[in-house]
């Protein structure tokens, strides 16, 4: 209990003192997670919608288990793949992205991508099949139908975004592998927590953990508000 109180005091001190190192870490955390989420949504949502629409007409075959497996992809495996690809001997080694925030964004995108595909696919599939038939009967083209079904499934799609955000902001295995936890370069909240824990600074580690939780809470409040507005749109 005492360590928790100390951690709370430390977290509060770090925040009100506007500790520049802390704010740099928070900034990088949000930048990496936000970018990865954006890429995962841009790359994953169209695929999820397409597959969701297709699944209303025919079975997805082996795609469904592949996507489900991807949704449970261990972050450290994703990190390892990105590490191999971006290492000097790797296919993308010339990019020199290893141990930079870009590598961390790539790794987190790979982690979030199947989650966005799988959950948006489920959201589209859960829309009443009869609705698609009846909207077609009203004169909707395939494109108009797809857009309408996305709007109908917006709550489920927002849930996909929230789930993907939750997964990658708390992720440590991949970012520490491809980012290296370099101070001022690639240190994010999760990797900083690992470092401080290893150093025995449990109070500081816990304080960073609380800040991470607060950030996640704030982001989820924003996303839930958007979801709530979507419900009444």
């Amino acid at each position: 209990m005492e360590i928790l109180v100390t951690a709370l005091q430390e977290a509060w001190r770090l925040i009100i003192s506007r500790d520049p190192v802390l704010f740099e870490i928070i900034g990088l955390t949000l930048r990496v997670t936000g970018s990865a989420l954006l890429f995962a949504v841009v790359l994953g949502l169209p695929i999820g919608v397409f597959l969701g629409l297709r699944s209303k007409e025919s079975k997805l075959g082996c795609l469904a288990p592949i996507i489900n497996t991807g949704m449970g992809l261990p972050p450290v495996v994703a990190g390892l793949l990105v590490f191999i690809l971006l290492s000097n001997q790797g296919v993308l080694g010339d990019l020199q992205w290893l141990f930079t925030p870009r590598a961390m964004i790539v790794a987190q995108t790979i982690i979030a991508w199947p989650l966005v595909i799988g959950l948006s696919l489920t959201a589209i599939r859960s829309v009443d099949d009869q609705l698609a038939v009846q909207l077609t009967s009203l004169g909707a083209t395939r494109w108009q139908l797809a857009l309408t079904l996305v709007r109908e499934a917006r709550l489920g799609i927002m849930a996909a975004v929230i789930a993907a955000f939750g997964r990658i902001i708390a992720e440590v295995g991949a970012v520490i592998l491809v980012g290296g936890n370099i101070a001022g370069e690639t240190r994010v909240l999760t990797t900083a927590i690992v470092l401080e824990t290893r150093k025995g600074n449990f109070g500081l580690a816990l304080a960073l953990g609380l800040i991470l939780l607060i950030l996640a809470l704030l982001a989820n409040i924003v996303l839930h508000r958007l979801q709530h507005e979507g419900r009444h749109a």
Binding site: D128, Q130, L131, V133, Q134, L138, G139, E152, A233
Partner: peptide, 12 residues
């Protein structure tokens, strides 16, 4: 256009 036995309406 067609009206079906069970109408499917938009969440609007």
């Amino acid at each position: 256009t067609m009206v079906f036995q069970s109408p499917a309406l938009l969440k609007r």
